[in-house]
Design a protein around this nucleic acid. Sequence first.
RNA 1: CGGGGCGUAGCGCAGCCUGGUAGCGCAUCUGGUUUGGGACCAGAGGGUCGGGUGUUCGAAUCACCCCGCCCCGACCA
Length: 573
Amino acid sequence: MRYSRFFAPTLRDDPADAEVISHKLLLRAGFIRRVTSGVYDFLPMGLRVLRNIEAIVREEMTCAGAQELLLPMVQPSELWQKSGRWEKYGNELLRFKDRHAHESCLGPTHEEVICDLVSRELRSYKQLPMNLYQIQTKFRDEVRPRFGLMRGREFVMKDAYSFHADEASLQVEYQNMFTTYQRIFNRLGLKFRAVEADTGSIGGNQSHEFHVLAESGEDLIAYCSHCDYAANVEKAISTRVIPSFDTAELSNISTPDMTAVEDVAKYLGVEASQLVKTLIYQVTGGAFDGQIIAACVRGDDSLQGVKLARALAADIVELADDAALKTIGSLKGFVGPQGLACKVLIDTSLQAAVGMVAGANKIDCHVSGLSIARDVADAEIADLREVRSDDACSKCDSKGSEGYIKQARGIEVGQVFSLGQQYTKPLGVLFQDQHGKRAIATMGCYGIGVSRLIAAVIEQCHDDHGMIWPLALAPFQVVIITMGKSETAMSASEKLYQDLIEAGIEVLWDDRKERPGVKFKDAELMGLPIHVVIGDRGLDADAIEVRQRAGSKQAISMASVADTIHSIMAEVS
RNA sequence: CGGGGCGUAGCGCAGCCUGGUAGCGCAUCUGGUUUGGGACCAGAGGGUCGGGUGUUCGAAUCACCCCGCCCCGACCA
């Protein structure tokens, strides 16, 4: 490709509305442009990288025995009614009516559609197992799209769905996909970590997420310093040292204007861990749909919202407003679990707690001497607290207990789910087993955020000058930078350009009438792996400069440039 | 959805407080001089100042409403 004819508008300044480095660089280097919130154009440069990632994903999926197909983006509401997710999925599901007033949605994921397809074609256990995948544009109407390709509303995803005659077969495929994902992310040159995960709106009984480690990651993952335990904080467990306090009678204490945990603890001269933090939530979905509930953790712990939703089998839990507090007989800043007119959940770390301090459900008043078992007898005990750094690892050898929890930020680029019969049952994915009996298929699903990976790679691999692409992902492997406009430099460049193309190398020839600095800056910004600089100076001395974006440079004779490029490429890949 | 910020040329910004012919840098076009790290000189094009309503002789500027964008939170593969 000749740069003078190529559509890659670069920017000198960072766009003001980009926050993270990948977003800034993608815009500046002319890879993407924003159309509307969370929706982007992929310009030629961006598309080339996307295609390269797709190629690796395809290769590995094929190698793992999966077959590619393509499912529709527009899906009828009926299928979602069957799975129960038409109501359950919430506002992320973009619903609309067609001209016949038929309700449809844009596919945020494809369990329903694939089950519908397979249910109509599956006859015998002999057809199983089967793993089908696609690489396709998804739409999720995210609450808050941000960071460019990291969290878009429209994005490219690889989603695979496997069907099995039994659970054992599913476990084999789950493991197969797990190792396939490890291979894919390794080939992409990423530092990543697989962690145990909550199953979220997809559901199922087992799940792992793959996180690219980066400070800009939106997820927090917890891992053990000692053993191989690692989990998303939405799910992570740990063992905290549970302090004990003396039993006492329940009594009121005046705490004027003391609404925050720290204030009350300081005022009373106790540790925050002696306080019960009671949070009031509005629940949507599940057995407590539409109700207000209370959830308690220790004063020095944080409540994990996903764990709470899981404990209640709810779709959404959100902090209730002040008016809701009144309906359960309490008020903001002075809530306590005792005597509330609603369901109360208590974190396991509080199960046996005595001598605690909590709000008195009266203005300017707390209680001391609270005993959970005695004073909140009908509460449900559940794991609600979020793990903290330095907690003891629960999975480590209980005798030694050497491990402690550490935390890191991650960008979720893949997730695998063991779904069981959650979708196959309502959508009727049946087959005849060895005994001629009708049986329900067992299912797994496996996603990779393909467009998000573009951002993830940049987050992990860039410097002050711009992106740094590994050879396998680079939009072009080589850029020829022609200096000046002398006839000799131009013709030498063009010859090399043609030679490299014939050798099957993707090469960008910067033949623009720009000054050298401009060309260097653009090539570096775009992160192209190999730069060949051709100018009169180099030609006269027969010392052509070949640079690698990631580091080294060398000067070699014009005649051996092509060979040098070949050997660099062989070495790097 | 709550809190905060912003919206002026393709990009980055000033002007707004204190109303009076819309500016700067980069980018673009023309001509010239340059040419191994984002050149210089001269000239030119490009704007319903996010939209609407109001106040006013007069609104980018003041008031109200709406829309969009960014950040934090809530929420979410």
